[in-house]
Nucleic acid binder design. Structure first.
Lengths: 161, 161
DNA sequence: GTCTGCATACTCGGATAAGAGCTGTCCGAGTAGCTTAGG
DNA sequence: CCTAAGCTACTCGGACAGCTCTTATCCGAGTATGCAGAC
C-alpha cells in the first residue's frame, strides 16, 4: 500500500504557492525546478489539482498555476483525494457473497463487520487529514522557520533558469 | 493507494479459524474453497501471517494453519502489517533536501511539517486498527449473526471437496 | 503617436512508453498416516 | 495379534509468469506577449 509520490510534491507546491503574490501564476517547470523534480510529471499532478478545483491553470506566456481558493479552504485531504482518487484503500470485494449460505441480495460492504472496521479506520485517517489545512501548514512553517517565506519568494522572483 | 486484496482474505480466514476446534489445523485449500478463492494465492497470504507469528503452519496430512495465539491477542493492525508490510503509505522522500538553502545533515522526515502531518494521520489509522481484535470481531458476529459460527463449523467439518 | 494585425514563444493538456508491484500459478521438500509384511 | 518398515498422499513453501498501476516523457492546442507596419 504505497501512496502516490505526487502527493508529497503537490503538498509542497501548494505550500509554496501560498507565498506567491496573489494573481501571479507560477509555471509547473518553475515549481519543479525548486525541488529538482521532473517537470512534466509534476505538471501531471498539478493538472489533477486543477481538475479538483484546488488550483487554476493559465496557458501561454506568464501563465502557470495558482491557488484557486484561500489556503484556509484547502485541506490536506483535498490534495490527497485529488491525486489518489476518492476510493478507499481497502476495497471490500464482498467475498462473503461467495460463501455458503450467503444472501445474494445483501450488500456486504455495509453489513460485513470486517468491512465496517476497515472503513472506520480509514475514516479516522481522513478525518485527521481533513482537520489540517494548507493555511495551518503555512502558519506553522512561518512560526518555526521564519526565513522560509522570504527565501522562497525571493527564489521564485529572481531565479531565471 | 490500493490495499492488497489479501488483507480481506486474511481477516476473514482468521475469523473463521476462531471457530475451529483448537489444535485442529485447516489447509489453505479448504479455507480458500469456503469463499471460492484461488487456493495457491491465499496460501501465499497465510504464509505471511505465519511468518508474522499470527498463524502456525503444519505440513503433511491433517496439516494446515491454525491461530498461533488467542484471538484477543491478534489486532487488525497485526494482520494488515503482516500482509502489507510495516512501511507507511506516505513515504517522505525529503524533497526539501533538494531545495535551495537545505541542510544536508537534517533529517527532513522528522522536521518537515508536511511529513509530520501525514504521519500523524497514518498514526490515527493504525491506532484505530490496533484497537480492534479478532476476538472483538468474533464476539460481534456471534451477537449479530448467531447462526454463523455453527454453520461455519459444520461446513468445515462436513464438506469434502 | 496610436492602433491593428501577425508572428512568436510560452504553457498547459492529454496521449504515449518504460518500470515496479500486485495477482496468480506451479512444482518440489517434508511429513503424517496407511499398508503390508514379518515376528 | 502386534510391531515396524516402506509407501503413498497430502500440505506447506518458495520460485516462476501475467497483468495492472505508478512513474516518466513527449508533442500538439491554445494563448498572451511583443513587434512591425499602417493610419
Amino acid at each position: 500500500m504505497r501512496m502516490n509520490e505526487g502527493v508529497e510534491w503537490a503538498l509542497h507546491s501548494c505550500l509554496n504557492l501560498t507565498w506567491m503574490d496573489p494573481g501571479r501564476a507560477v509555471p509547473a517547470a518553475r515549481l519543479a525546478a525548486f525541488y529538482d523534480l521532473p517537470a512534466a510529471y509534476l505538471n501531471k499532478q498539478l493538472q489533477a489539482l486543477a481538475r479538483a478545483g484546488i488550483l487554476t491553470s493559465t496557458s501561454g506566456p506568464r501563465g502557470g498555476f495558482r491557488l484557486a481558493r484561500r489556503p484556509e479552504e484547502i485541506t490536506l485531504l483535498d490534495v490527497v483525494v485529488a491525486i489518489e482518487g476518492a476510493e478507499d484503500a481497502f476495497r471490500c470485494e464482498q467475498i462473503l457473497k461467495k460463501g455458503p449460505g450467503a444472501d445474494p441480495e445483501a450488500d456486504y460492504r455495509k453489513i460485513c463487520l470486517i468491512s465496517q472496521s476497515m472503513r472506520q479506520a480509514e475514516l479516522a485517517y481522513r478525518k485527521e487529514l481533513a482537520s489540517r489545512t494548507i493555511a495551518d501548514l503555512k502558519a506553522d512553517v512561518e512560526r518555526l522557520y521564519p526565513a522560509t517565506p522570504g527565501a522562497t519568494r525571493a527564489w521564485f522572483a529572481n531565479a531565471r533558469p
